[in-house]
């Protein structure tokens, strides 16, 4: 039972800081009596946990098959161009991090994009950029 709650603890830390800082990894390592490498290995397995600070707005654009068939690639290109960053990068002003992600589970409403906790469906390039502008 030793490691139970580790996942939820990681969520709480991530919710608090927006990422999982090294000193928190050290604390978890002590509390769960686990080598830091094991904590780190668990964190790195999940695509929604970060060990570095991310932008204020986490922009996730889905490019899995159903969205892909609805031109998510065009959406990805438009968002990249607008933000001036590549997949996985953060803008210089630390406002946006862009991730091209796997299925978000809104396959019937594609292409879709998530900005922090909010999902946006049936997007086109103009609407997506407007959504990003509204974050400014």
């Amino acid at each position: 039972m030793a490691r139970a709650n580790l996942l939820e603890r990681l969520h709480t830390i991530q919710d608090t800081y927006g990422y999982i800082p090294e000193n928190e990894i050290n604390k978890l390592s002590d509390q769960f009596d686990l080598p830091r490498s094991k904590v780190y290995g668990t964190i790195k397995f999940y695509s929604m946990f970060y060990t570095e600070p991310t932008g204020k707005y986490m922009v996730r654009v889905c490019d899995s098959l159903s969205c892909h068939l609805n031109d998510s690639e065009g959406l990805v290109t438009a968002v990249k161009n607008y933000l001036g960053i590549a997949d996985g990068e953060t803008t210089e002003d630390k406002k946006f991090t862009l991730e091209v992600v796997e299925c978000l589970g809104h396959c019937g409403e594609g292409p879709v994009m998530m900005v922090n906790d909010q999902i946006y469906t049936y997007l086109n390039e103009n609407r997506a950029i407007q959504i990003l502008k509204d974050c400014m």
């Binding site: 030793a2 490691r3 139970a4 709650n5 580790l6 996942l7 990681l10 969520h11 769960f32 668990t42 397995f45 999940y46 695509s47 929604m48 946990f49 992600v101 796997e102 299925c103």
Partner: peptide
């Protein structure tokens, strides 16, 4: 927290256990 493999029941159990 974003891992398709957790849909596999054994991976799911490891995830719940914090592994």
């Amino acid at each position: 927290a974003g891992a398709y493999i957790c849909g596999d029941e054994t991976s799911l159990l490891n995830s719940i256990e914090g592994q």
